[in-house]
Structure formats: structure tokens, C-alpha cells
Write a protein that binds this DNA or RNA. Structure first.
Lengths: 223, 223
DNA sequence: TAATTTAATTTGATTATACTAAAAATAAAG
DNA sequence: CTTTATTTTTAGTATAATCAAATTAAATTA
């Protein structure tokens, strides 16, 4: 079913191709985009594309676009599944801050062991989302919907909880910490100021806070 | 202090050299022994020994013996620390069987993140031994004493608990499972048969079992 | 559509990790 | 203390992943 074990590098290419096609809502992508994503030079990518084509993980002809095959897509999704489950582990169990989980998960996602991931998933209580609010694919490779919007799109009187941020600059993350907003924080939108799209929100009972549009545009929430 | 990040391969060589010198209670080891340990051919080892010498991780001159430097030893011990902590995680938290932890830990031991290991150790409650009964080195690289003997050395009337096995062949491990002996199993030595060194042992109350010398020589216990 | 710009590939090297076959050094045996 | 056997290294290749420089194909612009 799943092909023989792939190298870290091969897995990273497949993941990059998957992410590039997903985030641009397209079926395919190109050599240079992949090169930039992976921090490699285009000639390196060309070589790898040949190799992945031979292994039937992508479809590709030279000077043309790159597309994942069903098999390649499955591998990519499973790598993403591993990445996100490890992120949950690092955040929930080891108390890694939300913005520290990625780098380590980049390494952990390449550990080869189906059992490990099945058991990890169970240990974590079958989480549906990672600490950034991205959905965790199922063991069968089914990728859930992204159930989130920006805080700015939430209507008056509606409650939601924080699942991630769009921007991850240090000043923004520090500001969030300062006002005690993090993953899981419940927020109720009290009022929308029509003038500048500021929001009056309540965190806990009796605690209100006014935030700018720039703030609410960069906080990702789910209901 | 610690040199720049080493490759998986380099770390594996250092670990192999460390284990070979430790288990033979010597200061040094040889090309062929290393080759056998890591399932490579001698010429491959020679090349790597050159490289590790350049990096001042070992001392070595051609046709002579191999010895770890202080630096090399430290790296080796930290790899072993990571390996054993991951084994505890796999066994205690993910319910991996005792004989399934090794393979996955072989991969996990090469994840580079000091924070990860410090937090993992805390999460696991600062364990002193791995599921095989081997001591877990401290963050500073201090390696504890091995507090164990073989079951065959336990005197009549004395109780102990299983911390590991010497042999790990499938038939032996299956036999252990069959008689419900695993990590943590409490054993009391009832009688020693002088004739052939068989042991009569009790597991739970009212449950006695007679085992051969070959068996008791291969079960590791601590009091 | 011809000229130019951009994208992608080819060519030729490089580093890391392996191997086989042959040679050399050391150790063991007589 | 030679001869033989063992251990280890050299020499020459191989694969995977990477790059810079030069070339070719495709896309864009005039």
C-alpha cells in the first residue's frame, strides 16, 4: 500500500508540494516555488522531481507543473498528521509555548512508526486540531475542514475560542501574553465599533478589553 | 561547549564506541568491532574514524585502537540519555511493550533539542532507569550505577523485581510473556536446586514456577 | 511575431555515507 | 624469528543530496 520508507528529504518535498498547492488552492505548483519553500536552489529541486516521478509520488514533465499523485498526497498528509500530533504533544504535555513547537515537530514528523503515531494520538485524546488551530488528518489520511475565522469576522454577542494566530511576530505574541490571550481562551464579542472596526470583547466575567482591527484580524478563532 | 550539531551517523558511531568500551570494561575498541556493532563494513568505519578524530571526538591513529575523548564521551552519553528517556516515554505513556521500545527510540534519540529532553524528563517524573533496567544519565552527563544482577545470583528466600533481560531473542521473550514475567514483575526465590541450578520461584501468591539456569541467567533483577 | 525577460534544466562539482577488492600492517602460530 | 592468519587501510565506485555556472525552454512585452 504505502511505498517503502522514504527519506526525510523526500518527505519534506512531498509536504512542501502539498502545502503549496493547498494554500494557493491549486492542483499544481512549480520548481521555483518549491525551491523557495524548502530553502534549496532550483537545480536541486529538478533532480528530486525526477526521483519522485520515478517513484510515482508526483506527476511531472520537464518545464511543466508538478502535481501530487494519490500516493504522494497520502504520504504528505501522513507527514502533516505526524507533525500536528507532535505539536499537540509538545504543547499540551511538555508545556512548550505555542510558538516553540514548530521547529521540534519538524524533526519528529519524520520518525517512522505507525504504531507510535496511533498510540500518541490515543494518548493525546484524539485531538482534532493542533496548537495553531490547523486540523489533524485522520489515520486514513482524511483531512478535516479548517473551522476557523479571524476574530474580526465574529458577530456581536457571539462567543468563540482562540485556536491560533495569523501573524507570529514577537511584539504581537507578547501583547497576547500580556492580555492573557492564548490557545483555548474563550472570547465573547460584546460590541463592534463601526468607526474603526475596533472590538470590545470579554475574556472572563467582568473583564472587558478593547482591541484594534489589526489585532482582531490576526487572531484566529473557532466557535 | 558541545560542538556543532552532529549527524545521526556520527552520533551512532560515538554511541557504539561508548557501548563497546563500557560493556567490555576497556578504554578502547577496534575498527572491526565497531563495524559489526553498527552493521557496516570496516572500510566505512575507517573513514568515519578519521572524521571523528578531526573533530576531536575520539583519539585514534591508524592500525591502533579507538578511544573516546571527554567531548566524544559526553556526546555519546547524551545520546544514550535521550534514548533511555524516550524508552520510558514509549513504555510508560504509550504502553509499548518492553521489547518494542528499542527500534523507535533508536530514531528518537537523534532529535536535536535540549529543551525537549529536559521537559520530557520532567514530564516522566525524572526516572532513574529505563524499561530495560539501564540507568538514565543526568543532564550533566553523569551515568548512574547499574543496580542489578541476574536472577541466578539471588539467594533463597530473597525477593526482587525484574528490570530487564540479557538475551532478547523472540523465543525467550515469548516464553517470558507466557509465564507472565515482564518489567516490574516481583519474584521471590523459593529454592535453588543444587543439581542443575534450577530455581523454584514464586510470582504471585500461591503461584510457583520452576525455571532453568539458562532462564535465570538471562533475567535481570534489582532488589 | 520578434525580442527580451523569466523559469527551468543541464553540466560539472562537492560532501557524506556506503561498498568491494586489493594491499599493507599487526598479531598469532609454529 | 619466520610464516601464516587476522585486522585494518587504500583505492576505486556508488548513491543521495546539494550547489554554481551555463544553457535552453517558456512566457511576456513591445
Amino acid at each position: 500500500m504505502v511505498p517503502r520508507k522514504l527519506s526525510f528529504t523526500e518527505e519534506n518535498y512531498l509536504k512542501a508540494i502539498f502545502i503549496l498547492t493547498e494554500e494557493n488552492q491549486e492542483f499544481n505548483t512549480s520548481t521555483n516555488k518549491i525551491a523557495e519553500k524548502i530553502n534549496n536552489k532550483p537545480p536541486t529541486v529538478t533532480d528530486m522531481l525526477r526521483k519522485l516521478t520515478d517513484k510515482k509520488l508526483i506527476t511531472y514533465e520537464k518545464y511543466k507543473k508538478v502535481q501530487l499523485t494519490a500516493k504522494g498526497k497520502q504520504v504528505a498528509i501522513l507527514v502533516i498528521r505526524k507533525h500536528r500530533l507532535w505539536e499537540v504533544f509538545l504543547h499540551d504535555k511538555l508545556q512548550f509555548a505555542w510558538d516553540e513547537v514548530h521547529e521540534v515537530a519538524e524533526q519528529l514528523e519524520h520518525i517512522h512508526s505507525e504504531q507510535l503515531i496511533l498510540r500518541l494520538e490515543k494518548f493525546l485524546g484524539f485531538p482534532k486540531y493542533d496548537p495553531h488551530g490547523d486540523p489533524i488528518p485522520s489515520a486514513k489520511g482524511k483531512l478535516g475542514q479548517v473551522l476557523r475565522t479571524t476574530l474580526s469576522e465574529v458577530g456581536e454577542g457571539i462567543s468563540c475560542h482562540v485556536v491560533g494566530v495569523k501573524e507570529s511576530s514577537t511584539p504581537f505574541l507578547q501583547y497576547l501574553q500580556q492580555v492573557s490571550v492564548g490557545i483555548g481562551t474563550k472570547i465573547k464579542v460584546i460590541k463592534k465599533i463601526a468607526f474603526d472596526q475596533s472590538l470590545v470583547i470579554s475574556l472572563k466575567k467582568n473583564e472587558q478589553l478593547t482591541v484594534s482591527q489589526k489585532f482582531s484580524d490576526n487572531v484566529l478563532v473557532a466557535s
